[in-house]
Design a protein around this nucleic acid. Structure first.
Lengths: 240, 240
DNA sequence: CGTTTCATTGACGTCGGTCAAGCGTCGTGG
DNA sequence: CCACGACGCTTGACCGACGTCAATGAAACG
């Protein structure tokens, strides 16, 4: 296991931060302007797949931004049930809440092997106060999180299994398109059916059934951790 | 209909803003310090029950704070389904999103007759930048909204009908307790079963059944728009 | 090569939805 | 004063979407 050696403490060379997110304002800057903004203590790190990155209620004084790989935010209930709140892709700030509070109401696990940056919370906070551009992108993040959460709430409260899964896949597809990782309607898809189930409020078995019908109807296919979207129009019609 | 005359343009005399919310920092100030913060154009208004206060996607340059009565935030789907995202009580900022964007992703309807204040968005925004106390309470609101949305998501995704309704009622009870409007475990409860249903992702009929079992088990009772909480411990056990 | 993980499928069970009837409480108007 | 309809709550019969349990097989892995 020389994973730690491979992705351990070495700096992140190519952060694929093309997304117009929090990082747009913060990380596309040169090292010089980052330092000018008072962001001296970035720490670049890596983690293997299926690892807990941070846990609900634990005090941390870092703000996390994902550089590569997939992760997800979730809440676990005492009896083991798990609600996945969002999937995190390269360039995503884990949550704007991390900038303003030292504990979070959610946990984050890696899905694939990931690389991420930790900023010092206090420094980011100061940078936000001193630099309107940073504050803007931060409030933007926060508002987007709010809107996304309200939309997921609506999906879970009002839509059936087909609609929820269709919308989840379209959501991921759109976000990956912005990151330019889609080739020929195919993209890496590391989710197990259990992840989809925990996001959509279903069981893995039922997710399997729905994915089966999608496959039979020539809408999409998942194999070898790659999703092929064959008929986006039909999927959009289902998502309504 | 002299409603307009009764609650029309006259200023709000007793804003019951004891909640530690956005208003804590903003509205408990004296008129003088509000003016000092640049908040010249507050408009106090009223609306009868069941009225649309603002609509998804419409441009508005005001920030709304509820002074009295009940309202709710919701998203309506094209086919008429409605997801209620939150209930608004006296002292609540409709949403922090209103401060930073001129359109919202949700609509707001009054539930009872209400009174509310409109602030000028640009002025609030400026006040937030100039006054750290205001900015703090604003980010606090935003984070609370985020956490509440994630918790509702978890309720809808992972919990059954009984649990959802129990948690909704406990949530409302706690918030009304902070506002000191509860007397002898009784408080005004203007919700129809359809509202509860649209919040909890259920049908009104099924909500009626659950409320029936709660009544038969001596947990709570609703009549004449008043809720009587008879056995909070039992309700908490159901909410798990 | 055993072991584990995951997707698939079938049989069956249940939670919550649908449809519909009955009933009490309003508010309105004759 | 009563008649009327609108509205909301309750209840029952029935149905369907989704969950549960279990078996099978393919792929991943040490």
């Amino acid at each position: 296991m020389d994973f730690q050696a491979a992705v351990g403490g070495s700096p992140c060379v190519t952060c694929p931060l093309r997304a117009a997110s929090f990082c747009g304002a913060l990380l596309k800057r040169s090292d010089h302007s980052q330092r000018a903004a008072g962001l001296r203590t970035q720490v670049h790190e890596g983690a293997p797949a299926q690892k807990s990155i941070c846990r609900r209620g634990e005090a941390i004084d870092n703000v996390y931004v994902l550089c590569s790989g997939w992760a997800f935010r979730f809440i676990r209930l005492p009896d083991g049930r798990r609600q996945i709140l969002s999937f995190l892709l390269a360039g995503d700030l884990f949550s704007a809440a991390m900038v303003f509070k030292d504990t979070t109401h959610f946990s984050v696990d890696s899905l694939t092997a990931i690389r991420f940056i930790r900023f010092n919370r206090v420094e980011i906070k100061r940078a936000a106060i001193e630099n309107p551009e940073v504050l803007d992108s931060l409030t933007e993040s926060c508002l987007t999180e709010n809107r996304d959460a309200d939309e997921l709430t609506t999906d879970l409260g009002q839509r059936n299994a087909e609609e929820r899964i269709a919308r989840m896949i379209l959501n991921l597809t759109d976000r990956l398109e912005q990151r330019e990782v889609i080739r020929e309607h195919r993209y890496p898809f590391p989710l197990r059916q259990q992840h989809i189930a925990d996001y959509a409020g279903l069981t893995a078995v039922h997710v399997g059934r729905i994915m089966g019908t999608f496959r039979k109807e020539g809408i999409l296919e998942v194999s070898e951790n790659v999703l092929t979207l064959k008929d986006r129009a039909k999927l959009e019609r289902i998502a309504a």
